[in-house]
Design a protein around this nucleic acid. Structure first.
Length: 275
DNA sequence: AGCTCATGGCGAG
DNA sequence: TCGCCCTGAGCTG
């Protein structure tokens, strides 16, 4: 059984797209809304063939006949539970249930679950920035936006119209690993710094996509990380600074700090990430 | 048992 | 900028 509950940043959505490709694509699906809040949408999908699935940033798109796309955004609470074999009795508020001969998928608590036509999907994707998990993405468009922004780089790395799929964990870890002060203005970031940060986003998010867990330490190329023993934490992986406020920095021993930036918690090491 | 907080984003004002 | 959506984990008592 697969559960998407952990850390719904871009890697989770891309894994979901993979799962839908493997278990549902090119097969007839039965759709229902046990909770009742997606009855019309489920009726449109019922008995049709799933044509494919893809992800852009944190958005999941499942393609159906008649140019219909199922669009799901998990938000903070949303969760897909996917399993094989007999379908369990519905427990809790299941917005959408998809079932075929071998597999089933339950969606709960999503912030968005809707049917889009191609124009609606295009509009949505046009508002999204570069996705480090998308093949061929270069980060150049993100670079251009950052270069002319006075906003702190920590805010820009959370802005889905700049980098699609990066959330609070990856922005904190990428800033730490690249020794960037989170409050530096976007326009102060050099081409070299951005190239390194983008490459790091591709690596860290790629690792999380492949392994289903975040690990910015063991997957690190930074010399400080070498030889560090594996250690699980509450986030389902290993991190340098995310949610480690008050603890000692793994690299320098200074105390990890936190502050609120744009309604979200930011974490950083004041020594490793100074100026 | 009840409270708080959390990986996100939208719409009201 | 704030409240809300909606769920679960981890506290407290």
């Amino acid at each position: 059984m697969i559960d998407s509950k952990a850390m719904p940043e871009g890697h989770v959505t891309h894994r979901l797209a993979d799962e839908f490709e493997n278990r549902f694509a090119r097969r007839i699906v039965h759709a229902s809304s046990p909770q009742g809040r997606f009855l019309d949408g489920a009726a449109l999908l019922e008995g049709t063939k799933v044509l494919g699935a893809e992800a852009t940033g944190k958005h999941l798109f499942v393609r159906f006949p008649h140019a219909r796309w199922l669009h799901v955004h998990l938000g903070l609470y949303g969760r897909f539970t996917i399993g094989d074999g007999p379908v369990p009795e519905p427990i809790g508020q299941i917005r959408l249930r998809l079932v075929n001969r071998t597999s089933w998928a339950d969606l709960r608590g999503a912030t968005r679950c809707e049917i889009l036509d191609p124009a609606g999907k295009d509009d949505l994707e046009a508002r999204l920035g570069d996705d480090p998990l998308r093949a061929g993405a270069t980060g150049d468009r993100a670079r251009a936006k950052i270069a002319k922004s006075r906003a702190p780089i920590a805010a820009l790395l959370m802005d889905q119209s700049v980098v699609a799929g990066s959330g609070n964990i990856f922005r904190a870890e990428v800033l730490f690993r690249n020794r960037i002060d989170p409050m530096r203005e976007g326009r102060s970031i050099t081409d070299e710094e951005w190239s390194a940060m983008w490459a790091d986003l591709v690596e860290l998010m790629g690792y999380a996509h492949r392994h289903g867990r975040v690990d910015t330490v063991r997957s690190a190329h930074t010399p400080e990380a070498m030889g560090r023993p594996p250690r699980e934490d509450a986030h389902g992986g290993e991190v340098y600074v995310y949610r480690r406020a008050g603890a000692a920095c793994h690299v320098c021993g200074d105390t990890i700090r936190t502050t609120e930036l744009g309604n979200r918690n930011l974490f950083w090491c004041p020594t490793c990430q100074s100026g």
